[in-house]
Design a protein around this nucleic acid. Structure first.
Length: 115
DNA sequence: CACTTGACTTATT
DNA sequence: TAATAAGCCAAGT
């Protein structure tokens, strides 16, 4: 198993916790999660964390897309279609690998959680 | 140790 | 509005 530094592992947990809070039928972006976690974390790190979450079925990774609503991570799922299928199963329409009405469905943790 | 890569985003041209 | 550059930061080579 790949080993990560303690700080990195902690960061992974933070990302997973936020992703688990995304309501069904909503989506968020890597950047939104990174901003919510703050403290020098970049969107790339969030994507990197998600890449390691494939073995964590309880993390709704399909609800995390890039800032344009594009399903950039679809190729990392069990099948390239799994991500879109899961989204559509929640009532989220996907067209040309992009979430329809993304702007309306966006769930920004730093705004929705309104700390 | 230097360079490339990547589930990203923002700024600049 | 679209293409490019720059910032990002850990891992892999």
């Amino acid at each position: 198993m790949t080993r990560y530094s303690d700080s990195t592992y902690h960061f992974f947990d933070q990302v997973y916790d936020v992703v688990r809070l995304i309501p069904e039928g909503r989506v968020t972006s890597y950047g939104a999660v990174a901003r919510y976690l703050g403290s020098g974390r970049s969107a790339r790190m969030v994507g990197w964390a998600m890449n390691a979450c494939t073995s964590k079925p309880d993390v709704p990774a399909h609800r995390v897309v890039n800032r344009n609503g594009m399903l950039t991570g679809k190729m990392h799922f069990t099948t390239p279609f799994a991500m879109q299928e899961r989204l559509e199963a929640e009532g989220i329409q996907v067209r040309e690998d992009v979430v329809v009405e993304f702007k309306r469905l966006l769930w920004d943790p730093s705004r929705e959680l309104e700390l």
